[in-house]
Design a protein around this nucleic acid. Structure first.
Length: 290
DNA sequence: ACCCAGGGTCGTC
DNA sequence: GACGACCCTGGG
């Protein structure tokens, strides 16, 4: 049952709205003004305001706002400790973690991450956000709050109502078939989300995700990092390739550096929290390189 | 007007 | 493993 709720938390550690919402991990949060973001999550609509050391969460949610916020914003994890650990790797990581000091890896919905990152392939962030918004508006559950209508990301069943042509018309481009096929695969239980959640071994997990249409190595790694909170994976996109080559591999032609080489380098340097390191690097690289 | 790139993947060789 | 193609949008 959706209920209007509010929660105020003081002195949260490692919690900056811009770092969290603009670091590239999520697509459904929008900047309202200097200290306010509003987003649509699985449980409903949430507004977050930060003033000085006080963060106010407010929204219309299905479930208790305390447990939802605690889980979604990963409040159980000590990011200061992790940043400290990464800072000891080298000066680059010290800089990167300082730059994105308020980053937290959100616990986002697995299904939503699968579709969102299929859409992300060879695409740019503004367009990805637009497509997801249009898909939600087309077939997601409608929710009204403070006079504004929001649309939840569609469930498997809701998304399955769209044809390939519908998806194309919404701007998905060549990803239409991939979204269509993957939705069917999951709806027909050839691959289930429950089963995926249970896979502990990171290689087996990646292998299984690769069976979904539109899910290659990079997208699989993003799904693991953002949809399953697995820090022991390292998504390599153009930006991460760029920054990893510039800092560590130093090949004259970055396009010649293999993905495996980059991932091995990351494992060697950042160990089992390389996924988190990737996010600091991505955020830092996007803002500073070029 | 034209070219390029964007949180890549897929089919083919 | 290494190509080229792929839908669409914004920016030079």
């Amino acid at each position: 049952m959706y209920k209007e709720q509010k929660l105020v938390l003081n002195n949260l550690d490692s919690f900056e709205l811009e770092d969290i919402f603009e670091c590239g991990q999520c697509f459904r949060w929008n900047n309202l003004n200097e200290n306010t973001y509003i987003g649509v999550i699985k449980q409903g609509v949430l507004k977050v305001v930060k003033q000085d050391n006080t963060v106010t969460f407010e929204g219309i949610l299905d479930g208790d706002i305390n447990s939802i916020v605690y889980e979604y914003f990963d409040l159980a994890t000590d990011y200061s400790k992790l940043k400290e650990k990464l800072s000891k790797v080298d000066a680059n990581m010290r800089k990167a973690t300082q730059y994105g000091k308020g980053i937290r890896i959100l616990n986002q919905d697995l299904w939503e991450m699968i579709i969102s990152y299929i859409i992300s392939a060879n695409n740019n962030i503004p367009r990805i956000k637009g497509i997801i918004e249009k898909i939600s508006k087309k077939c997601g559950t409608q929710l009204e709050w403070q006079g504004i209508t929001y649309y939840l990301f569609p469930t498997e069943t809701q998304l399955a109502k769209l044809s390939k042509e519908d998806l194309r018309a919404l701007g998905c481009g060549f990803r239409d078939v991939r979204i269509y096929n993957t939705t069917r695969l999951i709806l027909d239980k050839k691959i289930t989300l429950q089963e995926i959640r249970k896979i502990d071994d990171i290689d087996s997990l990646e292998k299984r995700l690769l069976e979904l249409d539109g899910v290659g190595e990079k997208v699989a790694n993003c799904i693991m990092l953002f949809g399953l909170h697995r820090f022991d994976t390292f998504p390599v996109d153009v930006w991460v390739r760029r920054v990893m080559n510039k800092l560590y591999i130093k090949n004259e032609d970055e396009t010649k550096v293999s993905k495996k080489q980059i991932r091995d380098e990351a494992t060697k340097r950042f160990g089992n929290i390389r996924g988190l390191a990737q996010q600091y690097l991505f955020f830092w690289a996007r803002e500073t390189i070029k």
